[in-house]
């Protein structure tokens, strides 16, 4: 097997951090050997199939798949970063043992026509 022909290199620009790159490439590790190397302004990734020759059309396909997947993992990272606090709050509330009755502060009026705030005060 020609080792040089059996490998492709992809340059990942620095806008993608290492975590995004790892998460993306993780899904390729079932079929490919992956080497991640730090480079100026980004990361170099060497990819070669495990124990079989690299077909030419497969090389192109892998490039496209990795590039698409990087974008998706970048979006996932944004979502995770932005929602970390609210996720923790939701989970903490879900499993807290407090039984405080909190009246929702909402612009949405009660659909059957009475004010929940007033009802709860008047019935106390």
């Amino acid at each position: 097997m020609d080792v040089y022909n059996n490998c492709i290199e992809i340059f990942v620009p620095s806008q993608y951090n290492m975590q995004v790159v790892h998460k993306c490439l993780y899904w390729f590790t079932g079929k490919y050997d992956i080497e991640i190397i730090d480079a100026v302004n980004g990361i170099n990734v060497k990819i070669s199939p495990l124990n079989v020759p690299f077909k030419e059309d497969e090389k192109n396909e892998i490039r496209i798949r990795i590039n698409k997947s990087l974008i998706d993992y970048y979006l996932r990272e944004q979502i995770q970063k932005e929602t970390k606090t609210i996720r923790e709050l939701i989970i903490a509330k879900a499993f807290s043992h407090f039984d405080d009755e909190i009246i929702p502060e909402s612009l949405v009026s009660d659909p059957i026509g009475f004010d929940p705030h007033k009802l709860s005060n008047d019935t106390k």
Partner: peptide, 13 residues
């Protein structure tokens, strides 16, 4: 923080 956060938490629970 969504107004219906208690509902969301209940759904999660």
């Amino acid at each position: 923080v969504p107004s219906l956060i208690d509902l969301i938490s209940t759904r999660y629970r």
